[in-house]
Amino acid sequence: TPAPAYFSQETLQQRLQALIEGARESWTYGIFWQSSVDAATGASFLGWGDGYYKGYEEDKRKQRVAGAASAAEQEHRKCVLRELHSLISGGGSSAPDEAVDEEVTDTEWFFLVSMTQSFVNGGGLPGQAFYTGAPAWVTGADRLAAAPCDRARQAQLFGLQTMVCVPVGSGVLELGSTDVVFHSPEIMGKIRVLFNFSSPDAP
């Protein structure tokens, strides 16, 4: 069966959840970057399709060790979270709860910021994977820090140690982990099944 041009939002969420929750590895999040065409310029780009954030208790411990965000940075994050919560709850019709007022971890923040990002002309790790049709698997904080990609370097700064981008037909599936995760044929197989992608899993 050929891959659909676009996955529906509900289907996407189910696939992302199944992949992350069912994986042997500890993935912190999964994001599907959707290929689209800018109506004004005709340029193709990858934009936010959907994402699934899992996170771990372990992330918090690692943040403590790393020093975490400053108090000012935490206030900034909470402020943005309150605004976002207000937007999706109809201008503050529902009272903010602990989901808004509690500390925002580095990986949560990285995931939220991702919603604002897009990649044009093969830019960034997701764009490169889409442009070349070859998966990119970057393991280790040092390799992320040295990657020729702002997003990968930003990921490292927020405590991620592994980033994977796999082209899946109408976009790119990105996985991130605060653990060191080496290339896994098993997870590539799951992606192939769940996202119906038929490209080889090695460059």
């Binding site: 936010w48 959907d50 994402g51 899992k54 918090k60 976002l84 999706i88 509690e102 500390e103 971890t105």
Partner: peptide, 30 residues
């Protein structure tokens, strides 16, 4: 107007729901 495209709106709603579940399960971060 709608300040958030539908995909991001749904993603954000899920993010907040999951965050609330995590916090309920493990307690406050601080």
């Amino acid at each position: 107007g709608d300040l958030l495209p539908m995909a991001r709106r749904k993603s954000l709603q899920r993010f907040f729901e999951k965050r609330k579940q995590r916090l309920t399960a493990v307690g406050p971060y601080t």
